[in-house]
């Protein structure tokens, strides 16, 4: 009976995995085929087409740069803010949090539309800057939500001890506080990165002329040209890239966790 249940469970897990991965596998398999819809033997034409399509590559690079920059700025802004929030009166803090989390809860289309209307009223037209600001706004709550709890857990006496032992505030920050909140910071940064990379709606509303991210480019061309062969290759590269990144982060995470423990041990000594 027990093995039957366990077998059923494994079948169910397998089934869901199969469903989740069928589009991915399809894209990867077809990326090495010449035909759009069938397997016609191994070929790299789609990859060739991808690297020759300047617009897709531009959009790809835009997506990555935008995600990196907005995640970085949001992480810095959010982390600094968290220190401030910690010192804030509880009531004020919960008000601030409630407002700050609006982009997280609100419909993307309303956020995007409101930002567009606001920028149109203030500066007239959309540009790189409006897109960048919108993305930082979008990802900021994710950073705060990940950093703030870690900061709350941080034992202040360790920081004070560091100061008593002659460390400057800057030293104390980097040697004591940062290693401790680093996992939260990293999670926040990565989450910000993926949210920005994957965003379509906000970008659609706030991007300037002649600028596309991967999402808006695909959306646009899908209506004009349908599915380009390049997309299969692109999907494969993206998927494999993300997979590699995750493995790398797993490794870093394990190491930094170990370092965090040792730093804490040193602090209490």
């Amino acid at each position: 009976m027990k093995t039957l249940f366990s077998g059923l469970r494994k079948t169910y897990i397998g089934l869901i995995l199969a469903l989740l991965y069928s589009p991915v596998v399809l894209m990867i398999v077809l990326s090495f085929s010449e035909s759009k819809t069938k397997w016609t033997g191994f070929s790299l034409v789609k990859y060739q087409a991808l690297f020759q399509n300047e617009r897709v590559m531009d959009a790809f690079i835009t997506s990555i740069l935008l995600a990196l920059l907005s995640a970085a700025v949001a992480t810095v802004l959010g982390t600094v803010a968290c220190i401030g929030l910690l010192a804030m009166k509880k009531r004020l803090r919960s008000t601030v949090n409630a407002v700050a989390n609006i982009p997280l809860l609100n419909a993307d289309i309303v956020t995007g539309f409101s930002l567009m209307l606001f920028f149109a009223a203030i500066v007239g037209r959309m540009s790189h800057a409006t897109l960048f600001i919108s993305h930082v706004t979008l990802v900021l709550p994710y950073v705060v939500l990940n950093v703030y709890p870690k900061l709350c857990q941080f034992d202040r006496s360790i920081y004070d001890a560091a100061l008593d032992l002659g460390a400057s505030p800057v030293q104390a920050f980097f040697k004591v506080l940062l290693p401790d909140v680093f996992p939260g910071l990293l999670t926040g940064f990565l989450l910000a990165l993926t949210i920005s990379m994957d965003d379509f709606t906000i970008t659609y509303f706030t991007k300037g002329r002649g600028l596309d991210t991967l999402s808006t480019y695909i959306y646009n061309t899908y209506h004009i040209k349908g599915i380009l062969p390049e997309y299969y290759a692109l999907a494969t590269i993206l998927f494999v890239g993300v997979l590699l990144m995750i493995l790398l982060i797993q490794a870093i995470n394990v190491r930094s966790a170990a370092r965090g423990v040792s730093a804490k041990a040193q602090g209490t000594k």
Partner: peptide
């Protein structure tokens, strides 16, 4: 000092954008 450092970092990043 920390704050100004972080703010500077933010500024640098914004500038780079």
């Amino acid at each position: 000092k920390i704050a100004s450092l972080l703010l500077a970092l933010a500024l640098i990043l914004t500038a780079s954008v």
